[in-house]
C-alpha cells in the first residue's frame, strides 16, 4: 500500500472529506473486522466494533494527526472496546465451552467462513436448552453459567443436594446428546 496516498487520504479526512473517509474504510475495515473476529469468534461483535470505531473516527476527524500511521490510529480508537470485549468473552462460560468444543477445534485453515462462530454456537446452545425442563435449565444455568456449587444451588432452591445432582446429570445428558456434534465434553468440573 502506498504510504503517500494514505497520508493524503487522512489529510482529506481531517478536512472533512467523506469520500476519502469511505476510501479509508474500504482499505482498513477488513483488517479490523478480522482482528476482532479472531479474538471473539463472533461476527456480530466484530461488526459492531468496526461500525463504532469508524463512526468515531469520522466524528473526531478534526483531531487526527495525518503524519502518524492510520493503522495505529485505528487501533487506538478500537482498543478499549477490544479489551472490554475480550475480557467479557474470556470470562464467559459459554465461550470456554465453545473453545473446548469439537466445533472449535475442528477448524479449517483455508476457509475461515466455514468455521462455526461463537454466535452460531450460542444459538445452538440456547435452542437445545429449551429441551430441558424448567428446573433442569435453572440448575444447569446456576451451575455452569453462574458458577454456583451443588450445595449453594441446593440451599437456594431448598432442595436436597442429591436432587440437584440428579437434575444436573440429566440436563448434561440431554445437552450432550443434542449437541453431539459440537461437544467433546461439557465441563469436566462436574
Amino acid at each position: 500500500m502506498n504510504l503517500e496516498i494514505h497520508m493524503k487520504l487522512v489529510k482529506n479526512l481531517k478536512s472533512g472529506s467523506y469520500e476519502d473517509f469511505n476510501k479509508l474504510y474500504t482499505i482498513y475495515a477488513d483488517m479490523l473486522y478480522h482482528f476482532i473476529l479472531g479474538l471473539t469468534k463472533s461476527p456480530t461483535e466484530a461488526e459492531d466494533i468496526v461500525q463504532d470505531t469508524f463512526l468515531r473516527i469520522w466524528q473526531s476527524r478534526e483531531s487526527i494527526n495525518p503524519d502518524l500511521s492510520f493503522k495505529t490510529y485505528l487501533y487506538t480508537i478500537a482498543r478499549n472496546q477490544a479489551i472490554d470485549v475480550l475480557r467479557k468473552h474470556v470470562e464467559n462460560v459459554a465461550f470456554e465451552e465453545y473453545i473446548c468444543s469439537e466445533a472449535f477445534q475442528e477448524h479449517s485453515e483455508n476457509d475461515v467462513e466455514k468455521n462455526i462462530s461463537f454466535d452460531e454456537f450460542k444459538d445452538k446452545l440456547s435452542k437445545v436448552k429449551e429441551k430441558l425442563t424448567p428446573r433442569q435449565k435453572l440448575v444447569f444455568e446456576m451451575s455452569r453459567e453462574k458458577g454456583y456449587s451443588i450445595s449453594m444451588i441446593a440451599e437456594e432452591l431448598q432442595l436436597s443436594e442429591k436432587t440437584i445432582k440428579n437434575q444436573l446429570t440429566q440436563a448434561l445428558k440431554i445437552l450432550r446428546e443434542e449437541l453431539a456434534y459440537c461437544f467433546i465434553f461439557l465441563f469436566l468440573l462436574f
Binding site: 482498513y28 477488513d30 483488517m31 478480522h34 487501533y75 482498543r79 475461515v112
Partner: peptide, 12 residues
C-alpha cells in the same frame, strides 16, 4: 494486542 495488531495484514 497492539503488537499483534501491528503485524496483522489485510489479506483476509
Amino acid at each position: 494486542l497492539h503488537s499483534i495488531w501491528e503485524s496483522s495484514t489485510n489479506d483476509t
